[in-house]
Design a protein around this nucleic acid. Structure first.
Length: 187
DNA sequence: TATGAGATCAACT
DNA sequence: GTTGATCTCATAC
């Protein structure tokens, strides 16, 4: 089942867990989403908290688009914009289980460990070749492709990672038992 | 295994 | 000038 923009026109807290198990492809390269985090505009940890700026403008646009930003001056991080236009909510894609284009991924990442190829927001953007150039791209149009998950799968929820504000909110979602998470799940 | 520094940039104070 | 939704490598237990 191909995911369209309308899939994202709902609460981030509904969309985020449903993305677990979905397949993300960028120029035919990618895999199964195993870990995401939800960010809401009322959330102090969200970039959109405190209003629109030049960086987060895409988050304030319509849902179903990619928001890509530079993290720590080094990495790119990929988000999916959710909810109605102006709500400025997004889902951070934190980890994939690579299934397509393994050769290209290995070439970019220069890592032998399959488990480490896409297990982190910075790692997965490097693996797929996603950069600032994809900021504002539609997720249901080339070069992106999104396929919804087929079977039901067990999704865990827990605290988010790598943030200093609102750490306690359990808005991290992951595929139960996956070996490809950026960090193991306690619960 | 665990901790710590360095890389490097754009937003924001 | 400071800080971060991070990752890698080096050095120390």
């Amino acid at each position: 089942m191909r995911l369209r923009k309308s899939f994202f026109n709902r609460s981030v807290h509904q969309v985020a867990p449903e993305l677990i198990g979905a397949t993300l492809l960028f120029r035919g390269i990618g895999g199964i989403i195993v870990e995401v985090e939800a960010y809401h505009h009322t959330d102090p940890a969200a970039h959109s908290y405190g209003g629109e700026t030049a960086r987060n403008a895409v988050m304030f646009g319509p849902p179903g688009y990619a928001y890509v930003y530079r993290s720590y001056g080094i990495h790119w991080c990929l988000n999916f914009v959710c909810e109605e236009k102006g709500s400025a909510s997004a889902v951070l894609i934190r980890a994939l289980e690579p299934t397509e284009g393994l050769a290209a991924i290995h070439r970019r990442r220069r890592t032998a460990e399959v488990r480490l190829l896409c297990s982190g927001p910075g790692r997965l953007t490097e693996a797929l070749g996603i950069t600032h150039a994809q900021n504002g791209c539609a997720l249901d149009e080339a070069p992106f492709a999104l396929r919804g998950r087929g079977d039901e799968c067990e999704v865990l929820a827990g605290p988010r990672i790598g943030i200093t504000k609102a750490v306690e909110l359990p808005w991290r979602y992951a595929l139960a038992g996956s070996r490809f998470l950026s960090r193991p799940f306690a619960a």
